[in-house]
Amino acid sequence: MAVSGPAARTRRGLSLRARRTLSAYTFLAVPLGFFLAIRIAPAAGALVISLHRWNIVGTDQPFVGLANFREVLSDRQFWQAAANTLRYAAAGIPAQLALGFAAALLLRRAVRFRGFFRTVYFVPFVTPVVAAAWVWQWMYSPNFGPLAMIAGRLGLPAPLRTPALALYAITALVVWEYLGFQVVIFLAGLEAIPQVYYEAAAVDGARGWDLFRHITVPLLNATLVFSVVYATIVYLQLFTQVLNMTFGDPGGPLGNTATIVLYVYTLGFQRFHMGQAAAATVVLFAALLGVALLQLTVLTRRVEY
């Protein structure tokens, strides 16, 4: 096209923006349809269910307004599960991030056997939860387990059977499992930092710690934000690990390891009170969304310039 001069640039600029919007929505059309039909619509269904007395196998499902929410919010077990869930997150997320970051940095240092070590640290993440949970129960076994023996040396009782410890004993399993995940994420993040930055900074005279503080950490920000937000979502939705660690008594002795999703599962699928289970899910969803948005805002604002 033989168009030239400032006029052409304006026209191209305008049409460029429109074109970009058009291509954006073209790219998004199928995914948006998917998320709306397969995720949002069923979730909205849960909202509707939460306003009904909805026995899962029942035939009549009368509208009950906010009765399910009242019932859930006045249930001691719900609050216990909520408090537990926060404890899992408070203990597990920092541990997972710190250990994952340390392992990733160490792996970057290792030149020889790097692949071998990377595979080793990835192993927990591929171990099926059912198998892992059984082995961990052995390790905590009050009479035979090495971890229980260590706890005993420290003057602590059998971790899984002690209300004050059981939750953290399961947290350890979850951190162990997600360590491999976290390492891969951090490694990908570290690899994505262009070497040129290090080279440039090195030429400017920056050394070890300075490089780490001024290049690695800021440039890893997107990875960190992702890790924090995603770990929060994982920990606030813990379920499978908890269920498998205390199979005969889901939620552990006296409900000390129960989580919100376990509460939802028991209420909905074991006891068939789907209306209340849906109400608890709506509460969980609102809390999660709030926390995630807060994290995104705070974390992104602080380091993104």
Partner: peptide, 9 residues
């Protein structure tokens, strides 16, 4: 949509 537990879906 990440925040909806699969159990509910």
């Amino acid at each position: 949509t990440l925040m909806i537990p699969t159990e509910m879906l």
